[in-house]
Design a protein around this nucleic acid. Structure first.
Lengths: 360, 360
DNA sequence: GCGTCTTGTGTTACCGTGCACATCGGTTCC
DNA sequence: GGAACCGATGTGCACGGTAACACAAGACGC
């Protein structure tokens, strides 16, 4: 016999509130006078239950306020209904759009998104992935990037579909949906070169320790390579500030750019946010867009179409990208799915607006 | 004997991929030659394990690529480590900021956010909440709004902390953190009245069936009431379009407003997004801001500070709101927490910029 | 009339983990 | 030298649900 125990007590030693005592399927079954399985059948609408029995069970459910526990269900079925989604940040309309699109597509099969974001840190990505995998998602959607070795190993070892989105890596982990950020950069450069600009600049964030905007870097590299291939200097390509870029980034970097000699005639920003900030800063300084400086962005954020002059940019429908990803996942999660890696290019389009001067 | 069955097969009848067979704590224990509890102690770092045993276990974990299953752990401990978060949308920097702030605060105790959004639909809110509760979150954070009766009942019956955010309802369900949207609207009206404007307008979305921006509506009501108390007409208060408002909303509604007689001298928009759209549309039409029309927004979105002229608005630090909410949750989830409902006003500040004309 | 099928329901055995307690060898204490 | 204690580890069961199978009763075919 225990010598000292005053009373058993059900609380954990760790300082946590006692878990709520919610009704279980057993409570329902007792109240309705049926077995737990019958309740389970009613709850999941599997049929094979007499209408009168079903009504009794439903009444008991309503009376008790029973809400089935998916945690327990997941353990039993080995299917959680979770899809893990790893993004750099949520504070970006395009990434948020991906989440929305995914949710839309997954809704019909009752999957729920488990969202994590990394703030552009690789360490955080690894940490978050570890947390997410412990929740046993049925698939992982991750923003394409340069992952840590450990991260990639974790992903591949999970034995579930992995979809990299928003880029087309040369060596995808498994499936990929997106567009080539490198080509996007080249496209921007070709567009500006085609307009006859001589002094062409670009702005991006710089890599700072663990923080890296891999996709932005791909764009800027594509841009640089295209400049080089055209025999132009890349001296006006500026990397500044830690990711993510923002209006403030554009404003700050605009000042730096305007001090460069030769002064750039046209600039490509790796994100509309930066481009818009740059346009505004120029206007504050009395620099006319596009007469004195042409600006091209990327991402086609809503604000770009609104500013004056409206921003020339590169459009990708991120929401549709999310939906497409969702549909792919539904395929991959079906029983008869092939495991053959799929790579889907959703393409990109240049949106010509007024922030880039017309050809001379 | 079944007549046609070719082979039994382990697959479910429903068209689902076979669940992956991941190593369990039992596999680790066998490989390390210890009991499952010892593995569990190592994984959770509970101490009381010999260093050499710990190393053996860790080696086994690494060899197998074992990732503990939180689903099973949750069932056993009755603690999921989930916090449910219900927002109208993610495609809004301020709401996304709330999510970020919450995550920051909750990270230290290893809680994970379970995010759902309603797209401003009450039906969707109810549906999402039901889904979320089945995941047994330890608390619910929900954007304050007019909830369905069933939704409120569900929330209160869940027997977990419920925090309404981003408004201060007259009758909170339980806890509330935010600011009074009604007072925000009144503050905006007082600000414009104080500047001597006579013809004052406002723009918001309209309620369309199930779709309602409750908080925006509170702001616009506060605005109207303040106008009335000052003996002014509310004829220039326009409700148009379904929520959420956007740049496009502002642009569209600007046109409507400019046709009104008397022509408004000043306008309050329930969101900066709408305000910015309005400013841009006016500029496209050659209407000078603020000389011909003063514009005031709400929410202090980053873009507002960047446009020319910069937008006068009402600032709330949503990220801090999220952090504050996270800290409150950690308190509420501690064992010795009182259940006394708490209401926290985070306040708001008018940010005076150049889009509102100075007093005559 | 008997076997077989169909329908509705119950029984059993897990799913992977953690808590409470048991166990066991080796102190320490007086 | 025996009781109490301690550190390290193992055992049994519970968590809330579901898959698979068992079973009872009636329908049906020939």
């Amino acid at each position: 016999m225990t010598p000292t125990a005053p009373k058993p007590g059900r609380r954990k030693a760790s300082a946590m509130r006692a878990p709520p005592q919610r009704p279980t399927i057993r409570d329902v079954s007792r109240l309705a006078g049926v077995s737990r399985m019958t309740v389970s059948r009613v709850v999941r609408d599997l049929g094979l239950v007499l209408p009168q029995t079903r009504d009794r069970v439903n009444k008991a459910i309503a009376d008790l306020g029973y809400v089935p526990d998916r945690t327990a269900g997941s353990l039993a079925t080995r299917r959680t209904g979770f899809i893990a989604l790893i993004l750099p940040t949520l504070t970006n309309a395009n990434f948020a759009g991906v989440a929305h699109g995914l949710t839309e597509a997954l809704r019909e099969r009752d999957y729920h998104l488990l969202i994590a974001y990394t703030d552009y840190s690789q360490d955080e990505e690894d940490r978050q992935l570890r947390n997410l995998l412990a929740r046993r998602p049925e698939a992982v959607v991750i923003t394409s990037s340069a992952h840590r070795r450990a991260t990639s190993r974790l992903l591949m070892g999970a034995d579930i579909p992995v979809v990299e989105i928003a880029d087309l890596p040369r060596q995808p982990l498994q499936h990929a949906i997106g567009f080539s950020n490198y080509e996007a950069g080249r496209t921007a450069a070709r567009y500006l070169l085609g307009r006859g600009f001589r002094a062409i600049g670009a702005v991006a964030s710089s890599t700072e320790g663990d923080l890296i905007d891999h996709r932005g870097e791909q764009r800027i590299r594509g841009f640089e390579d295209e400049l080089r291939m055209a025999g132009r200097s890349t001296a006006l390509v500026l990397r500044h500030g830690r990711p993510p870029v923002s209006y403030g980034h554009g404003a700050a970097v605009a000042g730096m750019l305007l001090e460069c000699r030769p002064r750039p005639e046209a600039v490509f920003a790796v994100s509309d946010l930066s481009a818009v900030g740059m346009v505004m800063e120029c206007q504050r300084r009395g620099i006319r867009i596009p007469e004195d400086l042409s600006v091209m962005g990327f991402g086609d954020f809503e604000i770009g179409a609104q500013i004056i002059p409206p921003l020339t940019t590169i459009h990708i429908d991120f929401r549709a990208l999310g939906r497409r990803t969702g549909r792919l996942l539904l395929e991959l999660l079906a029983a008869d799915a092939s495991d053959a890696p799929r790579t889907i290019d959703v393409g990109l389009t240049v949106v010509e607006r007024a922030s880039v001067r017309k050809a001379r």
